[in-house]
Structures are given as C-alpha cells and as structure tokens.
Design a protein around this nucleic acid. Sequence first.
DNA 1: ATGAAAGCGCTAACAG
DNA 2: CTGTTAGCGCTTTCAT
Lengths: 329, 329
Amino acid sequence: MRTTIREVAREAGVSPSTVSRALSMPGLVNSVTRERVLRAAQRLGYEPNRAARGLITGKTGNLGLIVPDLANPFFPSLVKGVQARAREADYAVFLADSDEDPAAESDLVRVLAKQVDGLILCSPRGREEDILTLAATTTLVMVNRRFGRVPSVVFDNSDGIGQAVAHLAALGHKRVGWVGGPRASWSDRDRIRALRAATAAAGMDLYVAGHFPPQFEGGVAAADLIVAAGVTSVIAYNDVMALGLLGRLRDRGLRVPQDISVIGIDDIQMSSMSSPTLTTVSLAKEQAGRAAVDLLLSLLERPDGVRKPRRELPTQLLVRGSTGVAPTD
Amino acid sequence: MRTTIREVAREAGVSPSTVSRALSMPGLVNSVTRERVLRAAQRLGYEPNRAARGLITGKTGNLGLIVPDLANPFFPSLVKGVQARAREADYAVFLADSDEDPAAESDLVRVLAKQVDGLILCSPRGREEDILTLAATTTLVMVNRRFGRVPSVVFDNSDGIGQAVAHLAALGHKRVGWVGGPRASWSDRDRIRALRAATAAAGMDLYVAGHFPPQFEGGVAAADLIVAAGVTSVIAYNDVMALGLLGRLRDRGLRVPQDISVIGIDDIQMSSMSSPTLTTVSLAKEQAGRAAVDLLLSLLERPDGVRKPRRELPTQLLVRGSTGVAPTD
DNA sequence: ATGAAAGCGCTAACAG
DNA sequence: CTGTTAGCGCTTTCAT
C-alpha cells in the first residue's frame, strides 16, 4: 500500500492537516514543523494521492487532448508541445485519437471531460453546435479552428500564404493552383480565403482544384487537374498532399521546379527529405501545443478574466527545392 | 455540479447503494428496480466519478503509455493501437513523451505510476536495472524490448529479416550491407543478430556499416560507407534511415534498384510514398499496441497467473520498388 | 433484495 | 500556528 498522509503525520508527530498544509501551503506552517514534516514525507516516500485530493478540491491535475488522427504528421508535434508544457505545469495529459470519427469524438469527450480540468480539442470538422454545448460544460481550447467565443489557438494562415504568394510572384509566376483539403475543415476555408486575397492583390490568376482528402493520395489525385489547368505553380493544403503532388508530377514526366513550382503547408519532417525538398509554410506546431496549454491554464485560473482567449501563432515560409522561376514559354 | 449517485438514488426512490449495485453488479439487484435506476441515471446523465470510485476500489481505470519520441513515425501507430484497445476496455490513456531523455523518463514514470493501473513502456535504451525496479512496484509491459521476466511485446525480427534476406538472395544478391540504429537499442541488437544468422545461412557476405542515429540523417550519413563497401543491397534499421539512404544514393548518382537494392524496416506511411517506393519489413504496429494493452489487462486481472507474459508479433516483407535483381557486372 | 453506516485519502472550515 | 471535525462521491460490509 502506498504511504498515506496519516502515516506521515504520525512519523512527524503532527496532525494530518498540518502535513497537508506543509505540502500545499507552506506559508501557513511554522518553518521548523514544516521541515520535520517534509523530512518525514521524504523518508516515507510519500506522494499525495491525486484522486483523493481531487475529490475534495474538484481539480484533477489532468488535461485532456483529443486529436482526429495521430497518423497525420501534423499532430505528433502538437502533442509533444502539449505534453511538454503540461508537464512543466505539473499536469498529466490524457490523449485520445478520434480516428476522424465525430461520433467517437463525442464519446471521448464525454468520458474524458469527467477526469480532467480542461480539454484541448482538435476537431476540424465536428459540428459547431456540439462544440458549443461542450464548451458550456467544460473549460476547453480549440486548436486549428475558430468560431464564436470559444477559446482557440490557430495559425496565422494569411501571413504564411501571403509569404508563399509573394515568393511565387517574385519568381515570375502568374498562375497559381490550389489543392484543397476537406471541404468542412476550418483551416481549409481560412487558407483559401487568404489565398484568394493574396493572389488578387498580386494580380495573379488562381485555379482551385477543389477538395481532396488531406492525404498523400489526395495530392496524387489532384495532380492531373493541376497539370490540365496549365498553372506554373501550386500550393497544397498541407505537406502530405504536396508530397503526393510531387510524386504524381514526377510520374507524369514534369520536372519540379523547372516546369512547375510546388508549395506545401505544415513543414512536416518529410518535407525536408523529399526530392526535391519541399518549399513549405512552416507552422510552429509544438509552440501551438504549448500555447494551447497556456491558454487553458489561464482560463482555469480566472474563468472569465481572460479578455481575449485567442492565440494566433506565426507562420514562416521555408524556401526549399520545389520552387523556382516560372517557365518562360 | 455533476450529478452524483445520491441524486440518482433520490430520483429512482432507492438508496445510493442500490444505485451502485445496479450499475456495477446488476445481478444483485431486482430487475425491476434495476430498470428504474438505470432510467433515472440515464435521465440525469449520470456518470460515476472515477476518482471517487478509485479511492475505494484502488483501481483508476487508467493506463499509462510512455514513448521516447512521438516524432518518430513508428510511435503514432503504436499509440493509436493502444488507444483503440484501451477505449474498448473502458480505460483512458495517459500519454507521455520522454523526448529520448532517460531522466525525464524516470520522472514521468514516477508521476504516472500513481495514477494508473498499469504502464506500457517503450524505453529502448533505459537501464535494465531501473526498469526492473519499476516493474517490482507497478504492473508494466515493455514494448520493443525484452529481458528478464518483464512482460513484453516485441516483433519477430528474425522472421522479417529472414524474409528480407531470402528476397535479396532470390534476386541474386551476394553482398548485403546493414545500416544500424542506436548501439544501445534492443531492437538493433536483435535485428543484427537475426541478420547475421540469415546471411550466414544463405551464404551471403554481410557488411555492417555501424551505428547511426535512427533518423533520416543517419541514413544519409551511412550511404557513403555503403557505397564504398561495394555491396549490391542494403538493409536499414528502420524506414526513416532507409529513406535517408535513398536520398543520398540518388544524390550520388546511383540508381535504386538498378545499382543497389534498399530495404527498410517498419513500413511507415512515407515508405509507400517515396520514389522509388521502399521495400520494407512491415511491423504490425497498431496490433502491437493492442497486444500490449491486452497483456497488461490480463496481468491486472490475475497478477501472477499469466504463464508467459510475452507476445511476439508477426512481420511481413513488403516488396516494392527499391529492390531488384542484383547488378551483373 | 435493499438500506444504513463506515470509510477510501485528502483538504477545508472551524476552533483554539 | 495547529488540531479536530466534517465530508468530497463512491463502494462495501453488515444488517435486515
């Protein structure tokens, strides 16, 4: 059996409450007694039972993190960030993967919500209604999505896409294609909005290839449309799709970047390992995880005192091998 | 406030104990009463407080999972498997990423161990001594490592590497190179042992390029040694390294598979997306996660009743574009 | 088959 | 500054 607060109390010759105080509110205890208690606790290897503490304080010391698909290389980085920051703040993290299934997601939320102080939710496609209901009951932070007054952490897509378009314009490109992700995804909408604005401002033509699954295969599928559209450059919803594009373009006999320039978004590891390496809009994913935790913790401290519960994280274009000057035919 | 067992009791016109029984040991309650209770619980959206339950039963209903680096594409799949199986069994999962740092790992273990019923540990390089100490206190299952009597889930590396060597032999290769992972890794030792046996049996020459970090860069670094060694085929510790090899070999002007054949291990997503696609020994990663949970649960049920607390998961060579007949010069 | 009572380990009033 | 008391929500004897 684990040592309990009583045993420590006996060992130190004080009452359990004093032990409790010495550990949680050291200021309220005589320094001599405190020392004695701490040493006793040390000696016995005492660790407070968090469940018991939680029962009375109403706080669990746990956070929940729900992601749609850990196999998507975007998420591991985010999870690492959440992890790291949570650990610093002495919180443990429940992780759940909804497998892109909204129903499973609701279940997970319901189960997890009981055992955590707050929830970080990546639900690009869940119903707004459901999320609002949830937000009413639980302290939660959304990642990669924004609506209503729900606290959120998102990336500054406008900036990143602006940089990408400026880069292409500087290389002499006049026509750019867009390979979209899931229609229902908030990021997709945000990104295409930014792209419309940026290309219009730069006087470039924009060809939208439509929506595709945010996988390698999605990029493969889009490639032929892109080729047919005759654009000299293309931006994809994410890096995985851009890599799919790259593969199919090569198979079609097109050279990247001589014949067509390709840009991705995310900066996943593989984007620097492909051939050619992929020019991409880098997202500070780990930082986003940390920011989400920070936001959540501040929300927990002062439930309504956070004026603007929104964070927007920087993005940065990384120019690599897949972009070059526009073909001059 | 969440609804408590008392409110359900009042709503159903019974005592709290009856509610408890109706939920946890339905057999002990009159079926009519039980129905009434269940409906009341339903109506009030009652969910038992796990912490409170745990306080008395001594079980938390949580599992812990510690991985060295979620950014390594091997782990997300494993995590997904653990997740999925745990959810089915109504367990929640604490995830922790030790960032390849043994010290952080010990901390995590210590913190998590208190809040879970059992632990799944991926610690390719942690000290055996530390793990044994831990295993004495906590119910735990190791993944990808095996020693002593510690329960474990590993892959059948012998089989997979045997298949790979047979494949190369069938293609006429006589000399095979090995690009090793971390020296301290159990898997690395297991794999090279298997490789030594298989090549010897097949009468092939084996060139060992040494140990490298299990990253893309490790493969890149090994490539030149491999070229210099003059082998016609090479097997890498994992897919990420094999992709690094592929990249560097291409940069050196070698054609894969015409000049040299390359085989990886893991079957990560990217291995089917590279060019050429990567022949690889596929590991049932999700299944390993599920198996680890299964093993852990059976250990929790009958602490000493599990005769052989070891699982060995199948491996399967996937032949793709990076292997071909040996050059005939 | 059901209820009353006790208590898991801890913290938070309330006294002193 | 410290001890006593009560009780968080639940399960589990022990009665009935």
